[in-house]
Design a protein around this nucleic acid. Structure first.
Lengths: 165, 165
DNA sequence: GCTATTCCGGTATAATTATACATTTTCTCC
DNA sequence: GGAGAAAATGTATAATTATACCGGAATAGC
């Protein structure tokens, strides 16, 4: 089996993870109507997988097929239900967040791929002081605070949560 | 045909409309996993229709089937539609934007959930002076301006629009 | 009232998706 | 490194969903 190039797989950068990142990118930029269509595109991107695997990916990424302009296509589902229980945020946060940092009045949170929306929604529900707003991509949440002091405080709080209190 | 009780149909309160209202109520309160299941529940509610009709209802109501806790079920989808007509910006903006604020050289716009992309696209199409770029999440648009002065001007303009001019 | 037109919805079926099962790959613990 | 466990994925197929086609009811125009 010397031909297999599965050299990653260490830090969470498995084939599955990168494939799912690709899926998210594809459905964000193209109108993908069926899983077979997605399968074809994925193969072009270097991920030869069957429809069955894609069905499982779609379930776990919480993607949805919705009726848009002239036909159905896939897109990311609603980020999450609103969490209003602070203790839920902590476990969510600990499970998904990888790194936290800030520069000036911006806090950047890196999460597991596809989880940023959920982290973002949880953050929003906490109504943190000094936070003007949050934006989530696939694996990054950007938090805009009023000033650098607020950012520093927020980062400290988040790191305490991350460390398990 | 005196046996037919189609007494509504006047003001938009057709059988179809009330059936769809019922569908929305059902999926909001129960975990409906398949269209056949929904068909059964609808029949109990007094709407004997086939799966085909439900499929059409689901398409037009923009419902989605998503993977939740232990299985798939239906729920309402995101309302997002992309408008690209600049002159529509004002009404779009007034309809969707909730708050506007800025810190340093960043303007943060909060919109209705799922509308940030549309607001962002509309913003882009306006080619505002001093705006370096925009990023949209689900309910937040971040606008990066050249400096704080530009941000302040932009916020003032946006608030005037918000106030109806 | 009569005809044309549009809308609605059923039937049957094609298209699509989910999954049981088997196989391979990866991980874990010695 | 090897045995066993767990995760991942393909195969084949069952389950589910979308739609072409058609008929009947409502609506509009005359």
């Amino acid at each position: 089996m010397a031909s297999k190039e599965k050299k990653d797989a260490r830090d969470g950068n498995s084939a599955k993870t990168t494939r799912r990142e690709t899926i998210l990118r594809l459905i964000a930029s193209e109108r993908i109507a069926t899983q077979n269509e997605l399968s074809r595109r994925l193969e072009e991107e270097g991920f030869p997988v069957t429809q069955a695997t894609i069905s499982r990916d779609i379930r776990e990424l919480r993607l949805v097929k919705t009726a848009g302009n002239g036909g159905y296509y896939y897109e990311v589902g609603k980020p999450s239900e609103k969490y209003h229980a602070p203790h839920k945020f902590y476990s969510l946060y600990q499970a998904m967040v990888r790194t936290v940092d800030y520069a000036q009045n911006l806090v950047v949170i890196h999460s597991d791929t596809g989880m940023a929306q959920a982290v973002c929604a949880a953050m929003d529900s906490m109504d943190w002081p000094g936070v003007l707003g949050t934006i989530a991509g696939d694996d990054t949440v950007l938090v805009v605070t009023r000033d650098e002091g607020c950012a520093a405080e927020l980062v400290q709080s988040l790191r305490e949560i991350q460390a398990g209190r």
